[in-house]
Lab assay of single mutants.
Amino acid sequence: GTLHLNGVTVKVPSLEKAIKAAKKFAKKYNLEVQVHGNTVHVH
């Protein structure tokens, strides 16, 4: 999967790991997580 954090793109081995990391990051910075196919966006 691919993880987008505020314009930074990170390749992640699995989508589940990407979503987990995204949710952790989003919670910390009070951001929103959106999943588009195998790409996770945090903004």
Rank of each mutant, 00 (worst) to 15 (best):
E32T: 13
H41G: 04
K20D: 09
K23Q: 11
H4V: 14
L31P: 02
A22M: 12
A26N: 01
V12I: 08
K27F: 02
V8N: 06
K28A: 06
G1C: 15
K24A: 11
Y29E: 03
L15I: 11
Y29Q: 04
H41T: 14
V40R: 01
K20E: 13
K27C: 10
G7Q: 05
H36P: 01
Y29M: 05
I19M: 06
T9H: 10
K27H: 05
T2I: 15
N6I: 12
K28H: 08
H36F: 09
N6R: 08
H43P: 01
T2V: 14
K11Q: 11
P13Q: 13
Y29S: 03
K23I: 14
L31D: 01
L3N: 02
S14G: 03
A18G: 02
K11G: 06
V33I: 13
V40Y: 00
K28V: 06
T39N: 11
T9R: 09
G37A: 03
H36Q: 09
A26L: 07
K28L: 10
G7I: 10
T2K: 12
T9Y: 13
A21S: 05
F25A: 07
V35G: 00
V12K: 04
H4D: 07
A21E: 07
H41P: 01
L31T: 02
V33F: 09
N30E: 07
T9F: 13
K11M: 13
H43N: 07
V12M: 15
A22E: 00
P13S: 14
V33L: 09
T39K: 07
Q34N: 07
K20R: 11
H36L: 13
N30S: 06
V10G: 03
K23L: 13
T9A: 12
A22V: 15
L3C: 10
K20T: 10
L5Q: 02
E32S: 11
A26M: 09
N30P: 06
H4G: 04
Q34S: 14
Y29W: 07
G1Y: 15
Y29I: 06
V10I: 15
V42D: 00
A21M: 13
A21I: 15
L31Y: 07
V40I: 13
A18T: 08
V42F: 13
L31C: 13
